[in-house]
């Protein structure tokens, strides 16, 4: 076969492959792109209370700047994000170390440790709502049994964010622990042997060897949790609906209410796109960090 004929055959094969895979590619791209493009388009529309729609240009975005609820929601989102992420990373690493070193821990106990994140968030929210009810819940009963004062938990504007962060951390710390445990199991044993020979204490070994080597894994866990935490919705919606007052009104809850309770889909789209941009920003920042701590 001449070179020209071979090239022709290769071109034909490429064309056939492209033709055959085109429907799947087009479908996949459309499924991803359509909702995004549609939401962007909605962000430039305004909807009256009666659902009447008109082009609004950048009005929805300029409204964000002067909207107190937006800035308040952003602050609540960031506060909840930072608090939850710190709790989950600290306790996740601790739990992973416990599971890693407790080699003889029965499988059932290990499974119990990691079981909360398998529970649907709505179920977890309902369960904690009952436990934390200031009048009927078990939490205050336990506190009072130890002579401690009862708390309003989710009904207190001061304590609602720490309480929600605790609920989320109860559920997702085991997930972080699983990721970190995977990282621990992949660490090279030779480094630990060298440290042992040099007489390093367990704390020094953790501080100087384990933690630095685990950092890329911890950052990966942080990225995964960041995406979820910045979009935090289900547990808040089940437990407080953004209250008391607007003390737990995150951007996601605020956007949902604007869109589906007050029917202002245009402004809700602008809010959600802004939140998406924040999530992207956080992921990009963590990705850079991951590059910096890679070994």
């Amino acid at each position: 076969m001449s070179d020209a004929a071979a090239t022709l055959t290769q071109d034909r094969q490429k064309l056939e492959m492209a033709t055959l895979s085109a429907p799947a590619v087009i479908f996949t791209v459309a499924m991803i792109a359509f909702p995004v493009i549609y939401t962007i388009w909605l962000g430039f529309q305004t909807f009256s209370s009666t659902g009447k729609q008109s082009f609004a240009g950048l009005a929805n975005y300029s409204k964000l700047i002067s909207d107190y609820e937006f800035w308040h929601g952003l602050w609540i989102t960031i506060a909840l994000y930072v608090l939850s992420l710190v709790l989950q990373l600290v306790f996740g690493v601790w739990l992973a170390l416990v599971l890693f070193h407790a080699k003889r821990l029965p499988g059932i106990v290990r499974s119990l440790f990691i079981s909360p994140f398998m529970m649907p968030p709505v179920v977890a929210g309902m369960m904690w709502l009952v436990i934390l009810d200031p009048s009927l819940g078990a939490a205050n009963y336990i506190l009072q049994s130890f002579g401690l004062p009862p708390s309003d938990w989710l009904a207190s504007p001061t304590w609602v964010i720490p309480t929600v962060a605790l609920i989320d951390s109860w559920q997702w710390t085991p997930y972080v622990a699983l990721i970190v445990l995977g990282g621990l199991q992949s660490l090279p044993p030779s480094v630990y042997e060298a440290a042992q020979i040099d007489g390093a204490s367990p704390f020094k070994t953790f501080q100087r060897i384990t933690l630095p080597l685990l950092l890329p894994t911890i950052v990966t866990a942080a990225i995964l949790r960041s995406v979820d935490l910045l979009r935090f919705f289900d547990i808040i919606y089940i437990t407080t609906q953004g209250g008391p007052g607007n003390a737990s009104n995150t951007l996601n809850i605020y956007g949902f209410r604007v869109g589906f309770e007050f029917f202002n889909i245009g402004y809700a789209s602008a809010l959600m796109l802004t939140l998406t941009a924040i999530v992207f920003g956080a992921v990009l920042a963590f990705n850079r960090l991951r590059g910096a701590v890679a070994w």
């Binding site: 009810d133 200031p134 009048s135 009927l136 009862p150 309003d152 938990w153 989710l154 009904a155 207190s156 437990t239 407080t240 209250g243 008391p244 007052g245």
Partner: peptide, 20 residues
């Protein structure tokens, strides 16, 4: 009750039904 700012019909019915 404490936490009344989170009370809707579910909590109210539960509290009253329990005799509290």
């Amino acid at each position: 009750p404490p936490g009344v700012v989170n009370y809707s019909f579910q909590q109210i019915s539960a509290l009253y039904r329990s005799g509290r």
